[in-house]
């Protein structure tokens, strides 16, 4: 990935600002609604570029600890899902729930951080 500026993150930010400042005030109805949705989607991309790497690393470390095996994020999430379905995690519910809650909280922090505050 080139490191020249504007970076990919800065380009996404520029597109989001263009939609918010130039497009949104000049459209109405369904188009206005979809413009707001698009702005939110780009904000998700920006948050993911900024925080996603650290979240992935932490999730991977938790999965390795919980499952006692190695692999990448997709492999270990697949293994954990199969283990839950097979009832193999029933004996470690506390640790499982702690991991799942942290993972869900991270997902929300990217997808819709306002959801974590009241009246969000």
């Amino acid at each position: 990935m080139p490191t020249d500026r504007p970076t990919a993150a800065e380009l996404v930010e520029a597109v989001r600002e263009f939609l918010a400042d130039d497009v949104a005030p000049n459209v109405e109805g369904q188009l206005a609604f979809h413009t707001r949705v698009a702005i939110n989607a780009l904000a998700i991309v920006e948050r993911t570029m900024a925080q996603g790497g650290a979240m992935d690393a932490a999730e991977l470390a938790r999965l390795r600890e919980l499952l006692g095996q190695d692999g990448d994020l997709a492999e270990l999430n697949g293994a954990l899902s199969r283990a839950i379905r097979a009832g193999e995690m029933d004996g470690k519910r506390g640790a499982l729930l702690e991991h799942l809650r942290q993972t869900a909280q991270d997902k929300i922090a990217l997808a819709n951080p306002r959801y974590l505050t009241p009246r969000g």
């Binding site: 949705v37 989607a41 998700i44 799942l100 809650r101 869900a104 997902k107 929300i108 997808a111 819709n112």
Partner: peptide
């Protein structure tokens, strides 16, 4: 649809709610 794509990510909210309920 940008709307459907965005709703796909709302699954994270229900996952969070689900784990809070349990």
């Amino acid at each position: 649809s940008i709307e459907y794509a965005a709703i796909g990510r709302r699954a994270a909210e229900t996952e969070y709610d689900l784990l809070q309920l349990l």
